[in-house]
Amino acid sequence: MTPPKKPTLVSDNLSSPDKLAASLCVGVVGLGHMGSAFAQNLVDSGYKTFVFDRNESKRNACAGAKPASVLADLSVCDVVFSSLPDDTVLSNLSEGSNGLVSVLKEGAVHVSTSTVSPAISRHLSQLHEMNGQGYVASPVLGNPDLAKARKVFFMVAGASGPLSKAAPVIESLGQHVFFMGDDPGHANLMKLAANVMIATTLESMGETLALLRKGGIPTEVGFDVLTNSLFDSKVHKAYGGKILREQYRPAGMVVPLALKDMRLALLEAERSTTPMPFASLVRDRMVAMLARGWDTLDWSALGLLASQDARLPSAQELSDVLK
């Protein structure tokens, strides 16, 4: 299969990013850690930016943006980003008489940065198309700190017209965009697959560091050997560092959201008859974390679970780790 090519972008016909910013009005729906970072960066890039969140204080916290009290206020926008937690919230905000599909103007593009199922993206893409609009799936690899620094990665897919319009704006928010083709579901499947890789890496690192500790090797020494030899990826260093320091708050990805992503990935695996035994195991490990009440911890707390299973004491008091 031929890899997807980068589409011709609207910005290719503009001489500068400033002209692109002046030519488009953008909106952001969902002002959590990621959405608020995107909104502030859009403002800082010179875009006329509208922001919507059900929490009024979050709407008013984005300096330089225009707070939208209802979704209909986004009807002036050319491109609207949504940053929402799951399929249900994305569907509720998009569908219905007051949803994005109803209020956006003809030719506007909805860019979903959420980690959701391929099915919901394909469904919403069809609804937007029926209403003369566009839909682009653009899930993100990276955490809120990287989003603030414009260092996240985007996996982007959608029809060529909407994609050519939205991609230059997306590119301004991160360090690289991977174009996945015209099926928006492929961008979401790619993100789910990447999260499976991260989760299984966290599980293996947690178990390995527990083994080293139990065998008398200081965790810092084992971590140094592993991450400065064959296992020197960003995931090993960044997430493994959280396990090393027992730094599970503030969470970049809380356990319930990580579990949701594993569940979605395994549903896709079942549909395509793709056995994923390791992913299934890690999904169950996340259920065990919730059973312990760890719903506000970062998913790297898989390392904490491994150390507790090995009956290892925490470097800190467990009550301090879980604060």
Results as ranks from 00 to 15, higher is better:
Leu14Glu: 09
Tyr239Trp: 12
Ala306Asp: 01
Ser23Gly: 15
Leu318Thr: 09
Leu281Tyr: 06
Pro277Val: 04
Ser45Tyr: 08
Leu212Cys: 15
Lys165Ala: 07
Arg311Ala: 14
Ser45Met: 08
Arg271His: 02
Gly99Met: 08
Leu267Asp: 13
Val28Pro: 05
Ser75Met: 01
Pro17Arg: 10
Ser112Thr: 14
His186Gly: 00
Leu302Gly: 07
Asp309Glu: 14
Met34Leu: 10
Lys260Asn: 14
Glu246Gly: 06
Val221Asp: 14
Glu207Ala: 10
Val70Trp: 03
Asp87Gly: 11
Leu212Lys: 06
Leu24Lys: 09
Gly27Thr: 07
Tyr239Val: 02
Asp298Ser: 02
Ser94Phe: 02
Leu71Ala: 05
Ala194Thr: 13
Ser45Glu: 09
Ile198Gln: 03
Gln316Met: 10
Asp87Arg: 03
Ala265Met: 03
His186Arg: 00
Leu90Asn: 05
Asp284Leu: 08
His110Cys: 07
Ser280Asp: 09
Val29His: 02
Ser45Gly: 13
Gly241Gln: 02
Lys151His: 12
Ala37His: 07
Ser36Gly: 14
Ser11Glu: 03
Leu209Gln: 02
Asn131Asp: 02
Pro144Phe: 09
Gly222Tyr: 08
Gln316Arg: 14
Glu268Asp: 14
Ala68Asp: 02
Glu171Val: 08
Glu246Ala: 10
Leu264Val: 10
Val89Arg: 10
Leu212Glu: 05
Lys191Glu: 05
Ser164Gly: 15
Ala269Leu: 02
Thr2Lys: 05
Val254Asp: 00
Ala251Asn: 08
Asp87Tyr: 05
Leu9Ser: 06
Asp86His: 13
Thr274Lys: 03
Ser82Leu: 04
Gly215Cys: 12
Phe154Thr: 02
Lys19Ile: 00
Arg122Ile: 01
Lys151Val: 00
Glu317Gly: 06
Asp295Asn: 13
